Amino acid sequence: HNLTITQGKLFFHYNPKLCLSEIHKMEEVSGTKGRQERNDIALKTNGDQASCENELLKFSYIRTSFDKILLRWEPYWPPDFRDLLGFMLFYKEAPYQNVTEFDGQDACGSNSWTVVDIDPPLRSNDPKSQNHPGWLMRGLKPWTQYAIFVKTLVTFSDERRTYGAKSDIIYVQTDATNPSVPLDPISVSNSSSQIILKWKPPSDPNGNITHYLVFWERQAEDSELFELDYCLKGLKLPSRTWSPPFESEDSQKHNQSEYEDSAGECCSCPKTDSQILKELEESSFRKTFEDYLHNVVFVPRKTSSGTGAEDPRPSRKRRSLGDVGNVTVAVPTVAAFPNTSSTSVPTSPEEHRPFEKVVNKESLVISGLRHFTGYRIELQACNQDTPEERCSVAAYVSARTMPEAKADDIVGPVTHEIFENNVVHLMWQEPKEPNGLIVLYEVSYRRYGDEELHLCVSRKHFALERGCRLRGLSPGNYSVRIRATSLAGNGSWTEPTYFYVTDYLDVPSNIA
Results as ranks from 00 to 15, higher is better:
residue 244 P to F: 12
residue 359 V to F: 09
residue 502 T to Y: 14
residue 334 V to Y: 11
residue 322 G to Y: 09
residue 272 T to N: 13
residue 212 Y to P: 00
residue 377 I to A: 15
residue 448 Y to F: 15
residue 497 T to M: 03
residue 203 S to W: 03
residue 229 D to Y: 15
residue 360 N to S: 09
residue 499 F to A: 02
residue 281 E to Q: 12
residue 334 V to M: 07
residue 339 N to V: 11
residue 494 T to Y: 02
residue 277 L to V: 01
residue 226 F to Q: 05
residue 449 G to H: 01
residue 272 T to Q: 11
residue 375 Y to M: 06
residue 404 E to G: 12
residue 494 T to S: 07
residue 294 H to L: 15
residue 212 Y to V: 08
residue 336 A to T: 07
residue 400 R to C: 05
residue 272 T to A: 15
residue 370 R to I: 11
residue 277 L to R: 07
residue 459 R to L: 07
residue 349 P to K: 10
residue 249 E to T: 15
residue 487 L to S: 14
residue 405 A to T: 13
residue 496 P to L: 11
residue 323 D to K: 08
residue 306 G to F: 10
residue 215 F to Y: 05
residue 325 G to F: 10
residue 372 F to N: 07
residue 442 E to H: 02
residue 242 W to R: 04
residue 354 P to R: 08
residue 483 R to F: 01
residue 306 G to T: 10
residue 305 S to F: 10
residue 206 N to W: 14
residue 331 V to F: 12
residue 294 H to V: 12
residue 461 H to M: 10
residue 228 L to F: 12
residue 334 V to K: 13
residue 225 L to T: 13
residue 338 P to R: 11
residue 296 V to Q: 15
residue 489 G to P: 03
residue 269 C to K: 04
residue 483 R to V: 02
residue 359 V to M: 10
residue 372 F to T: 03
residue 269 C to L: 09
residue 489 G to E: 02
residue 304 S to C: 04
residue 345 V to W: 10
residue 510 N to Q: 06
residue 384 Q to F: 12
residue 227 E to Q: 08
residue 280 L to P: 15
residue 395 A to F: 12
residue 263 A to W: 03
residue 504 Y to N: 13
residue 321 L to S: 10
residue 401 T to D: 00
residue 372 F to Y: 14
residue 371 H to W: 07
residue 284 S to R: 13
residue 357 K to W: 03
residue 210 T to R: 02
residue 230 Y to M: 05
residue 229 D to Q: 15
residue 353 R to F: 02
residue 232 L to G: 11
residue 220 A to Q: 12
residue 396 Y to E: 10
residue 209 I to K: 15
residue 254 H to M: 08
residue 433 E to R: 10
residue 274 S to F: 01
residue 379 L to S: 03
residue 236 K to C: 03
residue 271 K to G: 06
residue 245 P to W: 08
residue 290 E to L: 11
residue 288 T to C: 11
residue 418 I to E: 09
residue 493 W to Y: 06
residue 282 E to M: 05
residue 206 N to M: 11
residue 506 D to G: 14
residue 479 S to P: 00
residue 299 V to I: 04
residue 476 G to D: 00
residue 315 S to T: 14
residue 502 T to H: 12
residue 292 Y to K: 10
residue 256 Q to Y: 08
residue 378 E to T: 13
residue 472 G to I: 04
residue 208 N to T: 06
residue 400 R to M: 06
residue 471 R to A: 04
residue 349 P to T: 15
residue 256 Q to L: 07
residue 222 D to G: 04
residue 375 Y to K: 00
residue 297 V to Q: 11
residue 499 F to D: 00
residue 447 R to T: 09
residue 481 R to H: 13
residue 491 G to A: 04
residue 254 H to V: 08
residue 217 E to Q: 14
residue 441 Y to P: 00
residue 214 V to P: 00
residue 396 Y to Q: 12
residue 460 K to Y: 12
residue 341 S to N: 08
residue 295 N to D: 04
residue 380 Q to D: 13
residue 266 C to D: 07
residue 436 G to F: 11
residue 420 E to A: 09
residue 509 S to T: 10
residue 382 C to L: 00
residue 215 F to M: 12
residue 454 H to A: 04
residue 403 P to L: 11
residue 391 C to P: 02
residue 441 Y to H: 03
residue 461 H to A: 12
residue 360 N to L: 07
residue 469 R to K: 05
residue 278 K to F: 10
residue 345 V to S: 11
residue 383 N to Y: 02
residue 311 D to P: 04
residue 486 S to V: 01
residue 400 R to Y: 05
residue 293 L to P: 02
residue 508 P to W: 07
residue 380 Q to P: 01
residue 401 T to N: 01
residue 497 T to H: 05
residue 301 R to C: 07
residue 318 R to A: 13
residue 458 S to T: 13
residue 270 P to T: 15
residue 338 P to L: 09
residue 242 W to G: 12
residue 309 A to E: 10
residue 271 K to A: 14
residue 394 A to H: 12
residue 389 E to C: 09
residue 416 H to T: 09
residue 236 K to M: 14
residue 258 E to R: 12
residue 506 D to P: 07
residue 303 T to G: 09
residue 247 E to C: 06
residue 383 N to V: 07
residue 269 C to Q: 05
residue 431 P to E: 01
residue 211 H to S: 14
residue 207 G to Q: 01
residue 305 S to R: 04
residue 229 D to N: 12
residue 438 I to E: 02
residue 498 Y to W: 06
residue 244 P to R: 08
residue 288 T to I: 15
residue 431 P to G: 02
residue 432 K to H: 13
residue 395 A to D: 05
residue 261 D to A: 14
residue 235 L to T: 05
residue 395 A to K: 15
residue 251 S to F: 08
residue 334 V to P: 11
residue 458 S to D: 05
residue 218 R to D: 04
residue 285 F to T: 03
residue 334 V to T: 13
residue 293 L to S: 15
residue 241 T to M: 08
residue 467 G to M: 07
residue 225 L to K: 09
residue 397 V to S: 08
residue 454 H to D: 15
residue 453 L to T: 13
residue 297 V to A: 06
residue 228 L to G: 14
residue 427 M to Q: 09
residue 421 N to E: 15
residue 342 S to Q: 05
residue 215 F to G: 13
residue 432 K to E: 14
residue 426 L to R: 01
residue 487 L to R: 05
residue 309 A to T: 04
residue 357 K to Q: 07
residue 239 S to N: 03
residue 345 V to M: 07
residue 407 A to C: 01
residue 272 T to W: 08
residue 399 A to P: 07
residue 463 A to S: 13
residue 412 G to R: 10
residue 238 P to S: 05
residue 501 V to K: 03
residue 229 D to H: 08
residue 394 A to Q: 08
residue 298 F to E: 14
residue 242 W to K: 09
residue 339 N to G: 09
residue 358 V to G: 15
residue 431 P to W: 00
residue 439 V to Q: 12
residue 245 P to N: 05
residue 341 S to H: 14
residue 318 R to E: 13
residue 312 P to L: 15
residue 218 R to E: 10
residue 407 A to L: 12
residue 372 F to K: 02
residue 258 E to A: 14
residue 377 I to R: 00
residue 387 P to D: 02
residue 373 T to H: 14
residue 275 Q to M: 11
residue 486 S to E: 00
residue 316 R to Y: 02
residue 250 D to R: 08
residue 231 C to I: 01
residue 223 S to G: 04
residue 415 T to R: 13
residue 367 S to Y: 05
residue 222 D to Q: 13
residue 399 A to S: 14
residue 340 T to P: 13
residue 461 H to Q: 11
residue 306 G to K: 10
residue 331 V to I: 14
